[in-house]
Design a protein around this nucleic acid. Structure first.
Lengths: 136, 136
DNA sequence: TGCGCGATTGACGTTTACGTCAACGTCAGG
DNA sequence: CCTGACGTTGACGTAAACGTCAATCGCGCA
């Protein structure tokens, strides 16, 4: 009797569409759509989709991309790289490395953008507080 | 003869749709669409739109919101606040201040999100480099 | 054995954020 | 005076990212 509930083998390290959708806060339609778009490729048990830890991690990557405002094609490129990272072809690894450098630069630019926005928002908040003080 | 070209009064501190669109890298359709959606309200010279520095700054705010993946309604709320910051009603200022706090929290969460992604991307890049080293 | 739950695949609808096109005004230059 | 560049307002089209609905299937169970 381990600590984890063990009803079916499903609960241990695999998920159905409904389970994973519920966990991630998306709908089953979304998961199927992403599969049709080539973003994930879960296994099958008969005709039913079976998602493992790798699929789950991939989905978290995808959702983070969405939070960053990326389009699905852009996201597909990024997550595809995690697969290519295990490659053994020098050319492919070098291309991937170059692309990762570009992505890093983009992310750093976003960081600066965010930082600037934060100070701006802080400035507006300061203005608000000053005006509130003046109203005494 | 001042240093600045002074063909019409237009060049000094105002812009037409076409000029501003060109400067900002969007289309005139986009500017008109944003106006119809209540995101900007440029002045008029006859029937023609006239954008001043305030409109320009507003547009940069809007475009930054887009880069952050915000929807136009969300952006409208944010940029609307910059107007409300000059308010003199205590209630309104307080509401605005509260909302700014929420926005700050959201932006900070995004910062952490971004930082995590950057280290992850760095890790994948390291893996690539190691594999490239092994190929000697 | 029949019920309900959750899964499947189409097919079509919807929203957002514009693009595109039509029809028209206006103003400077040749 | 005519042309061309740029402006205007609708109206309609479109791509992305799903939502929704229908018809069907397999599975556990009272």
């Amino acid at each position: 009797m381990s600590g984890a509930t063990k009803d079916t083998e499903d609960t241990s390290d695999c998920w159905t569409v409904g389970q994973l959708a519920g966990d991630l806060g998306v709908t089953t339609r979304t998961l199927r759509f992403y599969e049709a778009e080539g973003l994930i490729s879960p296994g099958r048990n008969g005709t039913s989709r079976v998602y493992d830890h790798r699929d789950r991690a991939r989905m978290r990557l995808i959702l983070r991309g969405k939070r960053f405002g990326m389009s699905l094609p852009e996201i597909r490129e990024i997550v595809g790289m995690y697969d290519g990272a295990a490659s053994s072809e020098r050319r492919q690894l070098q291309t991937l490395l170059d692309r990762l450098g570009e992505i890093t630069l983009d992310l750093q630019a976003r960081q600066r953008d965010l930082a600037g926005t934060l100070t701006e928002v802080g400035d507006v908040a300061d203005q608000c507080r000053r005006r509130l003080d003046e109203l005494d």
